[in-house]
Amino acid sequence: MPTKLDIALVYLRIFLDGFLIFIAVRRFISLSNDPRIIGAVIFFAILFFMNSFSKFFGLPATFWLSGKFIEYFLIIIIILFQPEIRRLILGIKLDIFRDDISKEVIEQLYEAVKGLSEKKEGALIVIERSVDTRTFVQGGKVLDAQISPEIILAIFNKQSQTHDGAMIIKGNKIHMISAILPISKTDDTIFGMRHKAGIGITEETDAVSIIVSDSGKISLANSGKILHDITPEVMRNKLYEILKPK
């Protein structure tokens, strides 16, 4: 005869098991705004319900079919979400070590991008978040300098040797310049290499990128999607919305 303590321990294990699965799924979903992930989670929940329902009511065909889907679900997930899984394994950092961006930095970026747009100076600025971009970036020079509009304008000056490549913002500092980013797989022909690189890093990580074209147009990329030809004010508002600075 199980004691009350034994029963309590069983319920505690069930709770901890479910809680850990919830945390893992929530973390996985947070790495991408791709609606396929939500769809996959819902699909798995439906399969699990069908399997339990058919077992309880004695429906052998439904029980067998849903059981087979569940059995191979992990393989299907690995095939469908290779970039997200790679991001989770290779690039993720613990949130306790995450350097949150400040409101002052967003305002400095706003002033810098506004100046770059007015001067028609091309630029690519990446704001790192919880995923370490080092896994996905090639080359580059470590700078670790304080952020200011003057420094950013000087780095992306057309006459400067540091004009090409991306700037990586990490925490509240300019961590790296002249970095080479992964190119997006998008086949949209209206975007050049700078825009595709800006989109590409947001497909591989949860970073946000700001792209200024040589014509002065401003774009903002996040989660593989891009807002093209926006004003500096819209860019600033979107940064506040996405980054939630402290």
Results as ranks from 00 to 15, higher is better:
1 M>E: 11
8 A>N: 09
8 A>D: 11
11 Y>G: 13
14 I>D: 12
17 D>C: 07
18 G>P: 02
21 I>Y: 15
22 F>Q: 13
24 A>E: 02
24 A>M: 04
31 L>F: 14
34 D>A: 02
34 D>C: 01
37 I>S: 07
37 I>N: 06
37 I>D: 01
40 A>H: 10
41 V>M: 12
43 F>P: 01
58 G>M: 09
59 L>N: 03
59 L>V: 03
61 A>K: 14
61 A>L: 14
63 F>Q: 14
66 S>N: 08
66 S>K: 01
67 G>V: 06
67 G>K: 01
74 L>G: 07
75 I>H: 10
86 R>Q: 11
87 R>Y: 06
97 F>E: 02
97 F>V: 01
97 F>Q: 09
98 R>W: 10
105 V>D: 03
110 Y>R: 09
110 Y>V: 02
113 V>G: 01
115 G>Y: 00
117 S>C: 08
122 G>E: 14
126 V>A: 03
128 E>M: 07
129 R>C: 06
131 V>M: 08
132 D>T: 06
133 T>Y: 05
134 R>S: 12
135 T>Y: 13
142 V>N: 02
144 D>S: 09
145 A>M: 04
153 L>S: 11
153 L>I: 13
163 H>V: 04
168 I>V: 10
172 N>H: 07
172 N>W: 06
172 N>R: 03
174 I>W: 04
177 I>F: 10
182 P>S: 09
185 K>Y: 13
186 T>C: 11
218 I>H: 02
220 L>Y: 02
223 S>D: 15
224 G>A: 09
225 K>S: 13
225 K>T: 15
226 I>Q: 02
226 I>K: 04
231 T>A: 08
233 E>L: 12
234 V>I: 15
238 K>Q: 14
239 L>R: 06
